[in-house]
Design a protein around this nucleic acid. Sequence first.
DNA 1: TTGAAAGCGCTAACAG
DNA 2: CTGTTAGCGCTTTCAA
Lengths: 345, 345
Amino acid sequence: MGKERVSIYHIAKEAGVSPATVSRVLTGNANVSTEKRIKVEALIRKYDFRPNAMARSLSSTKTKLIGFLIPDIRNPFYATLAVACERAANERGYSLMLSNYLNDMELQEQNLQKMIEMRVDALIMIGGKVDEMVSDEEYVEKINQITDTIPVVITGKLDGSDCYQVNIDQKKAMEDAMEHLIGYGHQKIALIGGRRDVNSTYTKRVTYRSSLRKHGIAFSADDIVETPEYSVECGLQVMDRIFDSGQELPTAVIAINDFMAMGIMQSIRRHGLFIPEDISILSFDDTFIAESETPCLTSVGYNYDRFANTLVETAIMAIEGKDPSKMQLIPPKLVIRESTAKYNG
Amino acid sequence: MGKERVSIYHIAKEAGVSPATVSRVLTGNANVSTEKRIKVEALIRKYDFRPNAMARSLSSTKTKLIGFLIPDIRNPFYATLAVACERAANERGYSLMLSNYLNDMELQEQNLQKMIEMRVDALIMIGGKVDEMVSDEEYVEKINQITDTIPVVITGKLDGSDCYQVNIDQKKAMEDAMEHLIGYGHQKIALIGGRRDVNSTYTKRVTYRSSLRKHGIAFSADDIVETPEYSVECGLQVMDRIFDSGQELPTAVIAINDFMAMGIMQSIRRHGLFIPEDISILSFDDTFIAESETPCLTSVGYNYDRFANTLVETAIMAIEGKDPSKMQLIPPKLVIRESTAKYNG
DNA sequence: TTGAAAGCGCTAACAG
DNA sequence: CTGTTAGCGCTTTCAA
């Protein structure tokens, strides 16, 4: 430790040029004579000099940083998306500043503030307070205060805010799921997991019910089960409870995500039933989990690269004042695997 | 967009004090009369003012940022660790700057440079070039150049470098695994996955062999299978190959991580065998996957919070010149679940 | 306790 | 093409 940091001044002095010239070869935004350029570049290599991003940002008022606020990177859905976004950002000369709020609204707030202090050029936020059914008025006000200065793109819903939205087409996702299952002859279909006050879940529920109606299938309140979390554990508990209740078992179960599906499958196996022979399972997100289960999960996924590109591209366009569209939809894609089968009542 | 950013100058002017005073109430590093403090604090609230972290860092030459370089956040092992590290860092007033190098050495290098440009106060690096069996001399030189200025803590091995090491006790981990399996009467134990040129894998292999020797069990070269990746896919392929080869099946399989175990289990089930009745499975890392499989996986895990705290604490101590110990070991912890059973030959 | 002033390392006019 | 000169927004002596 301790060695003195070299700056453009050191380089400039040793090269016999002005600091501005060094800056010019660094940024490439202006012409420098080949002679001087070569001299400077040699020094840069000699000292393995890296310009101070803080100073650069301070001066240019651009950080080339995009804040990325998500609930929990341990959920493969977010991990997949984060990796894709990081790549997308890097390709465009930006870095992702990621943070998890772990379903803690206060932490989400803190993280948000930290991003603002870092003067990120844009913000991508997913879930939590930006996907509540009824948007928190005070929160909207706070976000709008931010959007005055920094473009914010969300995956979710925030009524009355100036955010750009990049959303999964939840309606289509559920429709595809239902068409698949009903096409396989299922009538008793359960929808397990999620909170009704979360917009994406709410939309799925509504669509679930309208799909049933469209096909003339009676809706039973028992068939929609809410859970406080979107976890494996919750999936297991809910399915156990269904078994214990003695009520008529569904012939197909739609899990709100892959995590939930894992739990549900575990419960079903423990009760000695087979998937898909006894019960079909379908989930949302199509993460690596779907391919890794036995049997492999039929799941509604998305093109994560496309999703990520749209998110990042929208953010960058907004940064550059290019005015991207306010609302973009990511189409879902049903991947049929082994966990769903024709109903053979 | 467009609203003018407020700075300490605006606040100072409106409060009728000097910018220095505003800075003082911001940092809390000096005394300010209650009267002025209150006035300034009110203004800060009024404008929801957030000090510019870039300017602050530039001036103080501290960024309160810790770079966190990992292979792939999509692997639950890293995701779990990352979340724990983020929390540990936050608790101590630091933020994590995370990036994935996706097994791409060039990307690892780029990300590293970006961290340096950001002037992170310390660097935590895991795997990849910092866990190769034979350390790349040039790379060591490059890292040592960094450690001249920034403390680097690694989980891995980098001979001849000045890094702080926080490592999992791989030897103990494998010993525990082997004792468990051998104690259950297994003699034909396969070790599947990983590359021999990765130090952590190498250590496991060596320990595997010495455990066999200690118990007077003959070693068969067939029982160690190398894989290019640490993925579900590879696990599946390897196990399929073992079945196809017609060689004597192991009665127990040790998977190098949970991913690998998933693939192996999938293969075994597809071949009509049962776990653990026909083959026992044991894995390393004990991520959520271990609990979510059916049967639940017996796995050697670690106390991730402790692991993360040690990593972050070491980094911060080094930042503060407190001279932490150069080498610390994280003890593993065998969690026995349902995937291993007594051998009943 | 407080203000003035000098930097932190870089970029970006502005002359020349 | 190049050097000089202001900042960017904050922290931190140094005097008062």
